[in-house]
Amino acid sequence: MPRTQPLIEARQLGVRLGGETIIRNVNLSVFDGQIVTLIGPNGAGKSTLIKTLLGVHRVSEGQLTLAPSLTIGYMPQRISIDDSLPLSVYRLMTLTHRAARTAVIDALRLTDVPHLIDRPVQQLSGGEFQRVMLARALLKQPDVLVLDEPVQGVDFNGEVDLYRLIQRIRDERGCAILMVSHDLHLVMAATDEVVCLNGHVCCTGAPETITRQPEFTQLFGHKHADALAFYSHHHDHNHSLAEQGGHVHD
């Protein structure tokens, strides 16, 4: 798909839920092969925005355009499955999308957890569960992966690994990734574009430049901005983005 055509494009998008305006005036584009990260404080409407793109919530105003026959793989915010429901990883993966065992194992292999296929979901650790859900989102061979707080409930080392894994998936499969994150530091390393949301889009840009924008500092404070500026500087010297085949859009 040519770069000029976004896979997902929201223009002046607004969503009202139960009479309350959650987001408004949101412009957002996701291009092929791009990692876009949504950040913002609690209640900023990050999940609402994502769910609207997925068709869970209705668009109240503005426009939402998806590329024709776009397949989206979705990983929701950490979910808990009631202990009373006997469910194996295989069944969880194939709840709405029937797939052969071999296809499921292949998907689980992408996130390094093929051995978990027959495990009851309640017995998975936080990190294992998130990897299973990531594999689940990959099962449909999506053009876009939408990940809502993919590292929630994962310990710190696991977080770093998981972000690396997400980046590797983008590099190997070339799919676009739109993710929500709280975690400013780690996210900056593995993203092409940061969109900062607080009811509306208050700033957007490459991770190296966004921390210099006054709106960003206003929302996250100088401390974070400084830390991140330092981080991206440090990161430039590592050339890790370039090494892993990433690219930066402006």
Partner: peptide, 19 residues
């Protein structure tokens, strides 16, 4: 049966996946 099971696991996920 299958759609209700999907909704039981996670309603928004089921909805996003076309149920």
């Amino acid at each position: 049966w299958r759609p209700l099971l999907a909704i039981t696991v996670h309603e928004d996920l089921a909805r996003a996946e076309g149920i």
